[in-house]
Simulated scan of single mutants.
Amino acid sequence: MDKRRVTYNGLDCETDYGSEAYMIEFDISQADVLFSDQFLYGKYTVYFGLAAILLATLKNVWYRYSDMTYRRKVQNGSIEPGYFGSFIAVLTAFSRSIGYKPINMYVSKYLGLPATSGSFLFVFATTLYLALYSFVPHYWYRGCRGFGSPPLAVRTGVMAVALIPFIYILGGKTNMITLVTGISYEKLNVFHQFCGVACFVLSLIHIIPFIYQIYNEGGTSWLAHKFATFSYYSGIPPLIFIGILIFGSNSWVRKHCYEGFLHIHWLCGIGFFGTTVWHIHDANYEMWDYMWSALAFWMSQLMYRALVKTCFKPNALFLKPRPAQLRILDSQTFEVVVTNVADW
């Protein structure tokens, strides 16, 4: 036997499918846990990210304002911070003493954790937030698979897609988050990797309830039948692509095979985006909003980097004359100095 008999309120989940009593239980299940409500969890995911960006932006604005007022006070010959300024300075120093404290190098390296305690605490808080929204709401499963998709699978799938805009924004060397927060791309890269891992884990959680409930009710034959349909098999390629992205971004791979990592990364990034669109093309319209926003940020960042950083600044790049010094060393050492590359 590759299955066992599954019943719910006296109904056989397999043989009673489509009966009048079965459809009554279907309506009750949908009323208890609305399918449309599961899409709210994608918004909750985005809200958390926006709140974190807002706090970092306010910090950046405050630091800039503090620097400006300090310079003005120095020019006026007075640098007394006042009671409020002293309180903020002490609070800032205390926060930095916690946030900048380094984590053990070997723990950070081999477990893939952030290098500082502040980044680690933020990653921990984000993980806890996503985990609670994934597992605390009930129910995880419906009484029978025919009553609708497992709520756990739907909400984690939506949360995974909601992370995609953050993945592509944080992956850009020129990105909007750096612009508003003042945090460099190098420091944000750890959160780019974390969002990728979180998306991968949520995608796995998204798949498992489908496999478990279908196998439990119909065995391997029913599982094979369901995975021959578009909604199921189309989800496999994006999972493979993001898996390659994560494991290919390992520090050992980047250190020893950086060129391979670089080319595989952008190819799989395009593949992941395209196959995700393919997978959700007939899903709720809100899922498309995440993909369109990810594409908009991704393309605008690439265009900004290509145009503003290169084409619109030719005098700072390939057309700028540069002084050069050439030293040719052999048995009779001598030096040739050229003041301008154009002289050659």
Rank of each mutant, 00 (worst) to 15 (best):
M1D: 10
K3V: 09
R4T: 14
V6G: 08
T7E: 13
C13N: 13
E14L: 15
E25I: 03
Q30S: 03
L34G: 08
D37V: 06
F39C: 10
F39I: 13
L40Q: 07
Y41F: 15
K43G: 00
K43R: 01
F48I: 11
A52I: 14
L54G: 01
T57H: 04
Y63K: 08
S66I: 04
T69Q: 12
Y70W: 11
K73H: 02
Q75D: 04
G77S: 04
I79L: 01
P81H: 03
F87C: 11
F87T: 13
I88M: 12
I98S: 02
G99K: 09
I103S: 04
Y106I: 02
Y106M: 02
L111F: 13
G112A: 12
G118E: 07
S119K: 14
V123H: 11
A125C: 12
T127R: 01
L128P: 03
L132R: 11
F135A: 06
R142Y: 13
G143A: 08
F147N: 05
S149L: 11
A153E: 08
M159R: 15
A162T: 12
Y168E: 08
I177G: 00
G182R: 05
S184D: 15
S184M: 12
E186L: 09
F194M: 04
A198W: 00
L204E: 04
H206I: 05
I207S: 09
P209C: 14
F210P: 02
F210T: 06
Y212M: 10
Q213R: 12
S221L: 09
L223R: 10
T229H: 03
F230R: 10
Y232T: 04
Y233A: 00
P237K: 07
P237Q: 10
F241M: 08
G243E: 04
G243D: 01
G243W: 08
I244E: 02
F247H: 07
F247Q: 05
G248W: 06
N250T: 03
Y258K: 00
G260Q: 09
G260L: 13
G260M: 08
G260S: 05
G260Y: 12
L262P: 03
G271K: 14
F273G: 09
T275C: 07
W278G: 05
W278N: 11
W278E: 12
H279E: 14
I280G: 07
W292G: 07
L302D: 08
L302Q: 15
L302F: 15
M303W: 04
Y304V: 01
L307C: 12
L307M: 13
K309W: 05
T310G: 00
T310V: 10
P314H: 00
N315Q: 07
L319H: 04
K320H: 09
P321Q: 03
P321C: 06
P323C: 07
E335C: 00
E335Y: 01
W344N: 08
